Simulated assay, not measured.
Amino acid sequence: MLHIDLICVGKVKEKYIKAGMAEYLKRLSSYAKISVHEVSDEATKEEMTDLEVEQVLNLEADRIEKKLNKQSKVIVLAIEGELTSSEELAESINQFATYGHSHISFIIGGSLGLAERLKKVSDRSISFGRITLPHQLMRLVLIEQIYRSFRIINGHAYHK
């Protein structure tokens, strides 16, 4: 069975987002083993120098790297990543699984994004659009899209 890790900076606080995530995680359980790993975010302030931003991103990246499975294919979510459709995400997941990769890690950064070093070592950098979404909401969107991907891969009906 495919193992999927979601490694996310920060905690989900909103009950409605937790409820939505729980529903899709339950639905996903028949397709893959999925785990959500939260790493703590660094405090930020309104005005930050480039050096301060880089320091925050590197501290968060250190925490993310501790959660990464070394054999995992890594997909990062980044606003500047490759725009992807549900079908293209399904194809990526299916290709990784078809070619013997039993572990996929998705990474969602914090409010400042992700350190460049994580983007450079990723196998794919994707974006669901050029809009900025709250990181908590992005988790729910990603989990729903992973569920949709498995429905597509398995030829099951799912509303468009």
Rank of each mutant, 00 (worst) to 15 (best):
R124F: 09
A19N: 15
K120L: 14
I131G: 03
I7F: 00
F106I: 01
V74P: 02
V74Y: 01
K67A: 09
D62A: 11
Y24M: 02
M48Q: 03
E116K: 15
I75A: 10
L68H: 03
D123W: 11
V141L: 12
L83S: 14
R124D: 15
K119L: 12
K73S: 12
Y99H: 14
A61V: 00
S72C: 07
L57I: 09
R117P: 04
I152R: 08
K45N: 09
R139G: 06
E87T: 07
F150N: 01
E46Q: 11
R130F: 02
T98A: 14
E23V: 07
A32S: 15
L77C: 11
K73N: 03
N154G: 09
K15L: 11
F106C: 07
Y158R: 11
L137Y: 03
L112S: 10
E82S: 08
E144S: 06
I152C: 00
I131H: 09
K120G: 07
I34K: 05
K11D: 15
I131C: 14
Q55I: 12
L118Y: 00
L51C: 09
A61H: 01
L118I: 05
E52R: 05
E47H: 15
H101I: 09
T98P: 04
G109W: 01
I107H: 05
E52Q: 10
D50K: 14
E80M: 07
A32Y: 04
S86A: 12
I79E: 09
H135M: 02
T132C: 03
I131W: 10
L133M: 06
L83A: 12
Y24P: 04
I152L: 03
A22P: 10
Q145L: 04
G155M: 06
F96H: 06
E87G: 06
G81M: 02
E88D: 12
S149G: 01
E14Y: 08
Q55Y: 05
N58G: 00
E91G: 09
S125M: 11
K15Y: 12
I152P: 00
A115L: 02
R148M: 03
R139M: 02
V39T: 02
V53G: 08
L59N: 06
I34D: 03
T49P: 04
L114C: 11
D50N: 12
D62W: 05
L6D: 02
S122R: 00
H37R: 14
H3I: 09
Q136E: 15
Y99N: 15
L2S: 08
L89P: 10
E46W: 12
G155V: 00
L57A: 04
E88W: 06
K15C: 11
V76R: 01
I107M: 06
T98L: 10
S29Q: 13
I107W: 04
V141I: 04
A32T: 10
G10M: 10
K15M: 13
D5L: 05
I93S: 09
K160I: 01
K67H: 05
